[in-house]
């Protein structure tokens, strides 16, 4: 139950994000979710897209440093306390979150939480045991 995510290195200079989204658009790649982690000197763009390998290839061809990693997508009802419930499980199971971000699906009924844990296998087991819904890559892109 892993979802492939691509990460792109960004120097802090103007226009880089626009350039990346432009390249993806030209190649008809759809972005399902994204987040940017930024420091004083650089940023890391994380993307979940419908065509992971193509996205990686075209960005590389355009000179970007691109990495592929696995994340976990957890679906929760889009209502108050949705995220809190998941994080409670994360805490009681002693899982270490490297980072997370979220988006709401088109119907607006559910929210999807994207997690990067340091121990992915343990996290998958724990979250499933707690009865949470984990989505596959195809499911995320089909939303």
């Amino acid at each position: 139950m892993r979802v492939e995510q691509i990460a792109v290195f960004l120097e802090n200079k103007s226009g880089r994000l626009a350039e990346i989204t432009g390249i993806l658009a030209e190649n008809e790649i759809n972005i399902r979710a994204l987040s940017v982690a930024d420091t004083a000197d650089f940023g890391i763009l994380r993307l979940i897209v419908n065509k992971v390998d193509l996205a990686r290839k075209v960005l590389k061809e355009n000179g970007f440093t691109v990495g592929k990693t696995n994340v976990i997508a957890v679906e929760v009802p889009d209502q108050a306390g949705g995220l809190a419930g998941v994080l409670k499980t994360v805490e009681t199971e002693g899982l270490n979150v490297e980072y997370m971000y979220a988006f709401v699906n088109k119907t607006g009924e559910n929210a999807v939480l994207i997690f990067r844990f340091d121990e992915m296998d343990k996290a998958i087991q724990s979250l499933q045991k707690a009865g949470l819904t984990l989505l596959s890559g195809e499911q995320v892109c089909a939303l």
Partner: peptide, 14 residues
């Protein structure tokens, strides 16, 4: 930043 040293995690690059 080469592919080998790049990571999706800020702390790794820092």
């Amino acid at each position: 930043v080469s592919d080998q040293v790049f990571s999706d995690e800020v702390k790794v690059l820092e």
